[in-house]
Every structure is written in structure tokens, then in C-alpha cells.
Computed example of a mutant assay.
Amino acid sequence: MGTDDDEASQLREIDLHFDPYSDTAVDDYDSLKQTIEGMEVQKLLNRELEKSLPDTFLVTQIGRTLRLHEPEVAIQLVETLLAPRNLHAFRASWSTIMRGVANLRGDARFQEIFESIDVLLDFVPEQADHLLKAEASLLHYLRTLRFTRTNSRAAFVRRTYDQVHSDTVRRACIDCWRSWGDRAQFTFLRGRWNELSAECQRLVWLASFSFGDQGDGLRRQLGANLDQSWRLGIERQQGQSFGAIYRGWCDAAHADA
């Protein structure tokens, strides 16, 4: 076992961008996982907390390793990264930490720690609201909320949707409602269809497939008018409109689901 400094240097140098389509994908993954498991990553993370200025790249690398650990180790790291007292210290690595947490939350191998992750995520707005002021940071956080609905995150997402004017953020909120199958919010969006941007309308259209007869009704009522309103202005005169192409893609995606 090397010293802490040796392990920190090794972790900084490891390429953690795994290619799942490589001819040697399984061997590459196993080798990378074995290397990471041989390090005392939690100890390295704790050492960064002792510094007035944590090593941003090292913390970023730790965020990238989350899925390479066993569940019991992964949740210990997440608890440290998302602890209220640590969130501000690790703010420079926020995007990577959120991506790492989202990857964990979307991986069935870590199902046993999903509930613990969700509890930690739901405390973030209460404990570190200032970290969610920047749009990019907010989008990374919203990505982690898509997997399940809780009362606190449902309130947060609706409040965010109502308060922002960014189409990108509103689309992220709509995607949460789509993933949760939140019928009340789908009804809310349907009632405000004409106030939605074309980008938000398209995501609501995709979401409609998750809401049975109510979604079918939206598509029957509004489908005939979309070819013109969803035009991009680059379609060929004799070709299909973007709206028609998009609706066809949604139909095919639903048929394959």
C-alpha cells in the first residue's frame, strides 16, 4: 500500500473515462475497478476536507469513481460529498459530483443505497441553496432528481419551474415530471400549452405517452396544428416538416418501449 501522497498522485493520473463500446470493455472496466478498489479513496477525500482549499481536480476524480466502488463504499463517499458542512468546500467540483451521483442513482447495481442517496439529495436546497443559483449547477442537480418523486423535491421542482424563465431549466423540470409520471403536473402543462415555448411543447408531447388516455387526448387535439408552429425554417419545400419528423420519432420511441 502506497502513501496518501502516492495514491493521490495515482488517482490524479488515472483516465476514468471508460469506453463501454471498446472491444476490451469488460477487461478494461474490471481493471479500472480493481485499481480504484485498491485505493483508500475515502481517506483521500477526508484529507481534502482538512485543507482550506481542497484539490479541485482530486475531488473531481473522486466524483468520477463513485460507480467503481461497492455500494457500501459508494454511499460513504456520497455522504461525505453531500454533507451540509462539506457542500460549500466542494463547490468547485459540483458538476462532476452531481454527474457521479446521477450515475449511481441510475444504476440498478446500487439499488440498496437509492433511498439513502435520495434523502441526501433532498436536503441540498435547504442546506446549500446558494449552490443552485447558477443555471448549470441547477441543471446538474435536477438531473439527479428524475429517478423518483418525493414531496420535498416535487415542491422544489414546481417552485423552480414557476420562478425561472429559462427554457432549458423548465425543460429539465418537465423531464422530472415525465419521469415521475406526475399526472397533476401534466394537467398543469396541458392547460398552459399556448404559453409554452416550442421546445417545452415538444417535451410535453413526448411526456404525453406516459399518461394514457389523457396523453392520447392531447395528441389528438393538438397534433394537426404542430407542423407549422414547430417549423425550424430550414425544411425543404417538398420535404417533411420538423414537427412531423419529431412526432414520428416519438411514436417510434413509444412503440419500442
Rank of each mutant, 00 (worst) to 15 (best):
Ser9Gln: 11
Arg12Asn: 14
Glu13Cys: 09
Glu13Asn: 13
Asp19Cys: 09
Asp23Leu: 15
Ala25Met: 06
Tyr29Thr: 02
Ser31Pro: 03
Ile36Pro: 00
Asn46Glu: 15
Lys51Pro: 03
Ser52Glu: 15
Thr56Pro: 06
Phe57Arg: 14
Leu58Lys: 03
Gln61Asn: 04
His69Trp: 01
Glu70Pro: 06
Gln76His: 08
Thr80Trp: 05
Leu82Phe: 01
Arg85Asn: 08
His88Gln: 12
Phe90Ile: 02
Met98Gln: 05
Asn103Ser: 14
Glu112Gly: 10
Ile113Gln: 02
Ile117Gln: 01
Val124Gly: 01
Pro125Thr: 04
Glu126Asp: 13
Gln127Cys: 11
Gln127His: 13
Ala128Ser: 08
Lys133Ser: 10
Ala134Val: 11
Ala134Asp: 14
Ala136Gly: 12
Ser137Val: 05
Thr150Met: 04
Arg153Met: 10
Arg159Leu: 10
Arg170Thr: 02
Asp175Trp: 09
Arg178Tyr: 08
Asp182Gly: 04
Gln185Val: 07
Phe188Lys: 09
Gly191Gln: 05
Arg192Leu: 07
Asn194Thr: 10
Leu196Ile: 05
Ala198Asp: 09
Asp227Val: 06
Gln228His: 10
Gln228Tyr: 09
Ser229Lys: 04
Trp230Tyr: 02
Leu232Asp: 07
Gly233Asn: 00
Glu235Gly: 00
Arg236Thr: 13
Arg236Met: 10
Gly239Cys: 04
Gly243Glu: 02
Gly243His: 02
Ala244Gln: 14
Ile245Ser: 09
Gly248Pro: 04
Gly248Arg: 10
Asp251Ser: 11
Asp251Leu: 11
His254Tyr: 09
